[in-house]
Design a protein around this nucleic acid. Structure first.
Lengths: 121, 121
DNA sequence: ACGGTAATGAAAATCATTTTCATTTGTGAT
DNA sequence: ATCACAAATGAAAATGATTTTCATTACCGT
């Protein structure tokens, strides 16, 4: 099949370890890298197969890719202006793990986002 | 705007309270109901606004609509078979509120989902 | 250099979802 | 009942992410 293009992984890292395929592609374009969208998709998929990245879904259904092992964080997003604050989720991590174990689930992950209206809006 | 077509809700109920828009549409077709896909989408969206149904995402990104009780809750979803457990989020509620206030946000809401592999899978 | 396999990417195909817009239906006032 | 207007409807087109196709190119071992 196809192996991952290393520039894709490096771009995903540079993006903070968290981005959609389209975002990785646009980022590479902006930085002058010559690559096709198809290759970006294929590389990300191959990274998922190799368990080097995780794939999640945004609320709008777009797939987002996240480096495994990155200490992950959550977001606090303003519904009005879109300003985003990255937050640590200490309490959540334990909660998710605990609940999942109670129900006999393994291989546990989670998503959590907080949204509201920021000071300026 | 537009209100929900009652046949859509009744079909979603008949489907076990868990189906995608396309599935609801195909089900209604098969049962001889005359309705457009657009209306199915609009009705489901309106049900989501009215908090009569929840919307989640399948692994492939397709939105699935699900009847839910009135109390605010979160989900523990099996990535493999889709089994879903409704859970209470006591800890989360406080955490979200606290973090948001720290950053000066008001009108706060949140989403949280836990996913993993269930016992059977 | 040669032959074969893997990687690449442009363009077309897919598929769920949304938008547009013209038509129909329902409702309330008169 | 009739007129007028708002809401609902759905067919068709638009959108946007993702996948597939396929012809070309880069790479590797001989």
């Amino acid at each position: 099949m196809s192996r991952s293009n290393p520039r894709v992984l490096s771009t995903l890292e540079r993006a903070g370890g968290f981005a959609s395929a389209q975002e990785v592609y646009r980022l590479m374009q902006r930085e002058g890298e010559s690559i096709g969208l198809t290759t970006v998709y294929r590389s990300l998929q191959s990274l998922v197969n190799d368990k080097i990245v995780d794939v999640l879904r945004r609320d709008d259904g777009e797939a987002i890719y996240r480096l495994c092992g990155e200490s992950h964080h959550h977001h606090l997003v303003c519904k009005s202006c879109g300003e985003t604050v990255e937050i640590e989720g200490g309490a959540i991590e334990k909660w998710a793990q605990l609940i999942a174990e109670e129900h006999g689930f393994r291989d546990v992950g989670h998503t959590a986002e907080i949204f509201g209206i920021c000071k300026k809006c």
